[in-house]
């Protein structure tokens, strides 16, 4: 079922999902300097391995777009209190994060998830941008 779903998504999204695999570095897929926000309705949520994924339908002027929001690692999120029950299909959510390098991709590197009750949660393993100034090791 999941495999078929993936193939379907890959087909409609062409390039964008081709690199969503394993613990890749986000810089490979995403422009960490460009933040976007997407609001949509959850169709599937997997606190999955290796990464958490939320599939959502996004209304773009009457056209429904299939988006994938990719968050942090499963066990790391479990370690900080995630349960896999944060959202369910039908929930309206907002995800904030980095835009894909491929501008046509319906894909977002989700750093923050706003739940239906308005609560915002950090959804990644680490704050990658927080390391931009750590150029050299402290002496």
């Amino acid at each position: 079922m999941r495999a078929r779903y993936w193939i379907f998504l890959s087909t409609i999204a062409l390039v964008p999902l081709t690199h969503v695999a394993a613990h890749h570095s986000p810089t490979m897929l995403y422009d960490l300097s460009r933040e976007i926000t997407v609001t949509g309705v959850v169709t599937e949520y997997q606190l999955g391995n290796p990464h958490m994924r939320i599939y959502l339908d996004v209304d773009n002027n009457g056209t429904t777009e299939k988006w994938l929001a990719e968050g942090g690692s499963r066990t790391q999120l479990l370690r900080v209190g995630w349960t896999g029950m944060e959202v369910v299909p039908g929930d309206k959510i907002t995800v904030r994060g980095h835009a894909p390098r491929d501008a046509t991709a319906k894909l977002i590197h989700m750093t923050h998830l706003t739940l239906p009750d308005g609560t915002e949660r950090f959804a990644e393993d680490i704050d990658y941008e927080g390391f931009n100034d750590r150029r050299r090791r402290p002496q």
């Binding site: 949520y45 499963r74 066990t75 349960t83 896999g84 029950m85 299909p89």
Partner: peptide, 12 residues
């Protein structure tokens, strides 16, 4: 770590 996650189910 497991691969048991199911949509809409707790995954602990």
């Amino acid at each position: 770590d497991t691969c048991s996650q199911q949509p809409g189910k707790p995954d602990l």
